[in-house]
């Protein structure tokens, strides 16, 4: 194989998004993979809501984390980034 892609479990051009708690329940899965060629957190929100309409309400109250840090809507989401949707937290 000539393919020299880095060893990751996510292909370039796709983005795996981790879902937790009620977000996982509503969508019926713990992660989703979408095609991704770049864009902002805001773009990602729109894409996700379009992919899984059921999560739209909770998504509008959720934050997005990139590489384990909260990210604002204008932030860039690189291909292959570790992305998670963080619904309102309830620890303690």
């Amino acid at each position: 194989m000539h393919d020299q892609r880095p060893v990751t479990n996510v292909d370039k051009g796709t983005l795996r998004i981790n879902l937790f708690a009620g977000m996982a329940d509503v969508s019926g899965c713990r992660s989703v993979e979408i095609e991704w060629t770049g864009g902002t957190v805001g773009d990602l929100r729109s894409r996700l809501a379009a992919c899984i309409p059921a999560i739209e309400t909770l998504l509008s109250r959720s934050a997005v984390a990139i590489a384990g840090a909260y990210a604002q809507d204008a932030a860039d989401v690189p291909c292959g980034a570790e992305v998670a949707i963080i619904p309102p937290v309830s620890g303690g």
Binding site: F20, A21, G22, D25, G42, R45, L58, S60, R61, S62, A63, V64, A65, Y70, A71, Q72, D73, A84, I86, P87, P88, V89, S90, G91, G92
Partner: peptide
Amino acid sequence: VPIWKCEQSADGSREWVHSGSVPMGFLP
């Protein structure tokens, strides 16, 4: 802190608690 609790009753019902918030400035 991204931790969530799920309340589970004796009758088997379960519900994730999302009545709280996320940090300011990170909502759409």
